[in-house]
């Protein structure tokens, strides 16, 4: 079995959460541009909705930003009232970006090929583009 049969979203992306009232937004930023199409295919609204089912979002939206190799997920009514009304410690939902990054993605053959190519030493660009600063 391929070592890439399934990975956590954390392996492919980073994320930051923001809040407006009872609405949460979670960015998902591909660690490498080549992960973007893979995420666009696998990280569906339905998949994210299921991952947060215990918080009962009333609507989940995904906005695609191909030029940034990123997505913006907006989850309505996720924050149990938001920072002014939630009884939880983290009323802003600031920690929820790391809950999202724990989501496990089952990889199809195409996605496994992308990950295998990235894992192999590349003679051209050993440093991820985003780290070249």
């Amino acid at each position: 079995m391929s070592p890439f049969a399934s990975v956590s979203l954390y392996e492919l992306a980073h994320s930051r959460s923001g809040d407006k009232g009872n609405r949460s937004n979670l960015s998902v930023i591909a660690r490498r541009p080549e992960f973007y199409p893979l995420l666009a295919r696998l990280l569906t609204v339905e998949r994210v909705e299921k991952h947060f089912a215990h918080r009962r979002p009333t609507a989940v939206m995904r906005y695609d930003l191909p030029k940034l190799a990123a997505f913006n997920f907006v989850l309505d009514d996720l924050l149990e009232g938001g920072v002014n009304a939630s009884l939880g410690l983290d009323g802003h939902g600031k920690t929820l970006s790391f809950h999202l990054l724990g989501l496990r993605l089952e990889l199809d053959a195409e996605a496994q090929a992308v990950l295998a190519a990235v894992a192999a030493p590349s003679p051209v660009s050993p440093v991820p583009e985003d780290l070249s600063a």
Partner: peptide, 20 residues
């Protein structure tokens, strides 16, 4: 600290609804 594509992307989408 640092300013790179990752740090800027995280902040571009911070507290955003529809990016358009």
């Amino acid at each position: 600290g640092l300013v790179d594509l990752r740090s800027v992307k995280e902040q571009i989408l911070y507290e955003i609804h529809d990016p358009a």
